[in-house]
Design a binder for these strands. Structure first.
Lengths: 203, 203
DNA sequence: ATCTTAAACTGAACACTGTTTAGTACTTTT
DNA sequence: AAAAGTACTAAACAGTGTTCAGTTTAAGAT
């Protein structure tokens, strides 16, 4: 008798229902603005029910963290079709920026929000995150192999590039560029990115 | 009769009392963890009293935002005694990192926290912030004048450098480097900073 | 079909949060 | 001494995450 199996399926469905609802609310309202009661109302269950499926709010956002990274990797995937490693690197950077501006809530939960994830290393979010970083590192490795970059520590260079990209994106999302005039701000990211690429080229 | 004057002084004193208390709590507990009731308790007044001196919580943290930037500029000041502009630039970067690690709560409110400041441009925080950025821009201008850097858009290069520094610092403070092993993480910032300086040198 | 057991679910509460308001106590002015 | 004005607060409102006792529902056993 498949009762146990069906119950298990129901459990998974319910978890998904909660997660989908949280996901949707999160996309429209942003990270901190979604409450357990909001989610409960959306799925027409009591708030207490949610705690039967998730330990706490962190665990929910932890799951969303994973989804965000998955989306991120999907978004970046086309880039890896580009043959030339340096061109691939540039394209990856452009996609990174595009993703940030198109999905600020995802970006925030991935890289800016106070880590709400007591981080078991096995968690989906980190695995997907490492995959993205691994992609960057492999591109750099190829750039070095092809003589585009001089020989150096790949992980450190990847971190350096990531830091630059993240700095730019998080300053934008966190609204720390108001001191620039409209004119200056307009296209600042694109101009800066070009400069950064030039810096890398002269390597 | 100096009654009005005394009352005005009392008002300023009270504002300062609230701010000092908030400041202290903020340093030990961090941005989001300080509540109006916490502050009220610390100064032994009712929570409602605080609203007689500050419009809302934002206005308090707005004031702290200003203080953080002041502290930041003080911390950076010694660097400007260095004659050689490129050395000054490097020293500024090192100091930036040092400040971030020494005063994570300040750094968070300055650059990471969701802008809790409806930003009148006259606010102390932004003026001090612009001063810091202006310092960076003037260093770059000198580097260009001395032929250390090729001629280019100063504001964009300053933003590029700032972005890199901020990216590194905010990824660290927001705990997004757990995927690196202890070994890798150890000294990652220093190594990356060296690489970045090299990138700038080859300009 | 009834009884028992276990799982699913919820109402209400707890201890918080920022903020507002009505009312009290004290101080200054008349 | 009465009136006016200021300083302050208790209590409430609407919200938060979370827990728990108690109810409803479903399943298995007799």
């Amino acid at each position: 008798m498949g009762v146990k199996e069906r119950k298990e399926r129901d459990r998974v469905d319910m978890k998904e229902l909660i997660l989908n609802s949280a996901h949707q609310l999160f996309l429209s309202k942003g990270f901190d603005e979604v409450s357990i009661r909001n989610i409960a109302e959306a799925i027409e269950y009591s708030p207490a029910t949610i705690y039967l499926y998730f330990k706490d709010k962190n665990e929910i956002f932890h799951a969303l963290h994973g989804e965000a990274f998955k989306k991120f990797n999907e978004f970046l995937a086309p880039v890896f079709a580009i043959k030339d490693p340096f061109k691939r690197l540039v394209a990856m950077g452009e996609k990174y920026i595009e993703f940030t501006l198109a999905h600020p809530n995802y970006y925030t939960i991935m890289f800016i929000a106070e880590a709400p994830m007591q981080c078991e290393e096995t968690s989906e979010g980190w695995i997907e995150g490492e995959r993205a970083l691994g992609g960057l590192e492999s591109i750099i490795a190829e750039c070095i192999k092809e003589g585009q970059f001089k020989k150096q520590n790949i992980k450190v260079l990847a971190f350096t590039i990531w830091s630059y990209m993240h700095g730019m994106c998080s300053l934008t999302l966190r609204d720390r560029m108001k001191h620039y005039t409209e004119e200056e701000r307009e296209g600042m990211i694109e101009k800066s990115f070009k400069i950064f690429i030039q810096l890398l080229k002269n390597q």
